[in-house]
């Protein structure tokens, strides 16, 4: 490497800082952090899709699928976090791979809505399945980590560390991937599919790759969320408003930088936590109001604040 990538350096510094902070953080803070990482991972997948010109209103499908896949394994006696998260990630990825053959033919609003339709099918299936606790869901027991079985606060500390490591790898991976030919083809497909085809590559194939990736990370996020909360239920894992929240985070973060996604997720988690604490009746009002405010006044998301700041400096 002739020069160091600024984003990779930044992510690494934050990663190391958070690893240390993990041992001193207040419990509620760590919980918010865990949820931010889980949701941020889903938003990272949406960011990749968005750069390809596609928006999904249904990624709760993969989030919920990953969460339930991991949680169901605990029902049959598996408790290792590595296995659970791997299973959640992979199963969502496989689902995305198969649905991808259909979805890659759609663009714009059709793509967005068809995703929503599929996510509502999953929601319907979960709600109707008594074995999975129907609308109440079921609890997920405390995971072990390759034989290590933490207790008390150590559970969350270990889970946070575990999540942090994987999220760091995924995020740096996505950032580097964006600079490859296949990664950059997001731009090409978004801007002009006809040209891509006439340069000799399949735009649908590009979309399919991005879609499977978004499914994988959404499944990862879901599995982490299931372990973090210790509970899965359809309304907070698979319903349509969950998908809406992911899109909200993507809008809030902007698509300028992979790191911003997690800042956006964290801000979202803060708003959510405080709104639920102090004004639960107007939570949707606050969420909708801030979404409108971002759309009107901060069209490129939080990240544009940083770049604006940098520009005025330079």
């Amino acid at each position: 490497m002739r020069y160091l990538d600024k984003t990779v350096v930044g992510l690494s510094i934050v990663f190391v800082a958070l690893v240390f902070a993990d041992f001193f953080m207040a419990e509620w803070m760590r919980f918010i952090g865990l949820q931010s990482l889980a949701r941020g991972a889903v938003a990272l997948g949406l960011l990749v899709l968005w750069r390809t010109g596609l928006v999904s209103f249904g990624h709760a499908l993969y989030f919920g699928f990953g969460a339930y896949a991991a949680a169901m394994l605990t029902l049959i006696g598996y408790h290792d976090a590595f296995l659970l998260v791997f299973a959640g990630t992979l199963s969502a990825g496989v689902l995305a791979f198969f649905l991808g053959f259909l979805l890659r033919r759609y663009r714009a609003i059709f793509f967005a809505l068809l995703n929503m339709a599929f996510s509502m099918i999953l929601y319907g299936v979960i709600v109707k399945t008594e074995e999975l606790g129907s609308t109440d869901g079921f609890s997920v027991l405390t995971p072990t980590f390759l034989g290590y079985a933490p207790e008390g606060e150590a559970v969350q500390t270990t889970l946070f560390l575990f999540t942090l490591c994987f999220t760091y790898i995924i995020t740096v991976g996505v950032h580097l991937y964006m600079k490859t030919t296949l990664g950059s083809m997001s731009m090409a497909v978004r801007e002009n599919e006809i040209r891509v085809e006439y340069l000799g590559y399949s735009a649908e194939k590009v979309i399919h790759v991005k879609y499977v990736f978004s499914g994988l990370v959404a499944g990862f996020g879901g599995a982490i969320m299931a372990l973090a909360v210790g509970q899965v239920d359809p309304d907070s894992m698979a319903n349509w408003n969950v998908s809406g929240e992911f899109v909200f985070i993507t809008i809030l973060s902007g698509i300028g930088n992979v790191g911003a996604t997690f800042i956006g997720a964290f801000v979202f988690e803060l708003i959510r936590t405080y709104a639920f604490e102090y004004a639960p009746q107007i939570w949707q009002f606050i969420l909708g109001g801030s979404l409108l405010a971002i759309i009107m006044f901060l069209p490129d998301g939080i990240w544009s604040l940083f770049s604006r700041f940098r520009k005025s400096e330079g």
């Binding site: 991937y177 600079k179 490859t180 030919t181 296949l182 083809m185 090409a188 891509v196 340069l199 000799g200 590559y201």
Partner: peptide, 12 residues
């Protein structure tokens, strides 16, 4: 796009 195929697509 016109030069890369296979794993080459994953090079910068």
């Amino acid at each position: 796009i016109s030069e890369e195929t296979g794993m080459g697509l994953l090079s910068p």
